[in-house]
């Protein structure tokens, strides 16, 4: 489903990734671990085609980094959920609106949007916070809003880039449990992290990366 073949990424002449090959299967849960600056975020950005390799090929679903057209990118992104360390929520919009945005841009009818957003917020235990603004929520709640936004389009994979980086250990575990639950329903999860304690709680395949290379 996701395949990297000898991927090289250079920025300003410096290698960020070197000869990276990897494969993530349908419905799999994979940790991507390594120190800061190892190239974890770069791998995630390659998957949602925010970045293209200088050499090698990235294949996601039926799209290849070598052949994908600019106008196809929005459509593949609808099938990929992305979650960040800093949540990336819009501070001038409510929880409801933040989640609904992901459906609005795909042209879903507003009655349908309402139904689906309410369902996902309930699943995330956020329905009573729907009219709050992000800054009124705790870090864990904000990250759950971000996860809700990432999964509302029913993606085949959720990419989580240090999702627990800003959270305390207990909240981190809750977030991991949430991702675990999403994975149980068949969605693949690729979680980049350097929190080695946390990933011992739920064992999954781990890809280690250091200085741009798989180790």
């Amino acid at each position: 489903m996701i395949e990297f073949y000898n991927v090289n990424v250079q920025i300003d002449g410096k290698y960020i990734l070197r000869e990276v090959s990897l494969r993530i299967l349908k419905g799999e849960f994979v940790y991507l671990i390594g120190p800061s600056g190892a190239g974890k975020s770069t791998i995630l950005r390659l998957i949602y085609f925010d970045l293209f390799p200088q050499a090698g090929t990235v294949i996601v679903d039926k799209y290849s980094s070598a052949k994908i057209r600019r106008k196809d990118i929005p459509y593949i992104r609808r099938k990929i959920g992305v979650v960040f360390q800093d949540f990336k929520l819009l501070t001038d919009r409510t929880v409801y609106e933040n989640v609904a945005l992901a459906l609005r841009v795909t042209g879903v009818k507003s009655s349908e949007i309402k139904r689906r957003v309410m369902r996902i917020l309930t699943e995330m235990g956020l329905s009573q916070k729907r009219n709050h603004y992000p800054q009124e929520l705790s870090g864990g709640e904000q990250q759950r809003v971000a996860i809700a936004r990432a999964v509302i389009n029913e993606p085949f994979i959720v990419l989580a880039d240090e999702p627990t980086g800003n959270l305390d250990p207990r909240t981190s575990l809750e977030i991991l449990e949430t991702l675990e639950r999403i994975n149980k329903k068949g969605t693949a999860v690729l979680m980049a992290t350097h929190n080695y304690d946390l990933i011992r709680k739920f064992k999954h395949r781990t890809i280690k990366i250091n200085r741009g290379m798989i180790v």
Binding site: P74, I76, R77, L90, V105, T106, G107, N153
Partner: peptide
Amino acid sequence: KDIISIMRLVGATERF
């Protein structure tokens, strides 16, 4: 620019 980048992230077309 924040909302623009998030819209792109969740799959908004450039036209949208």
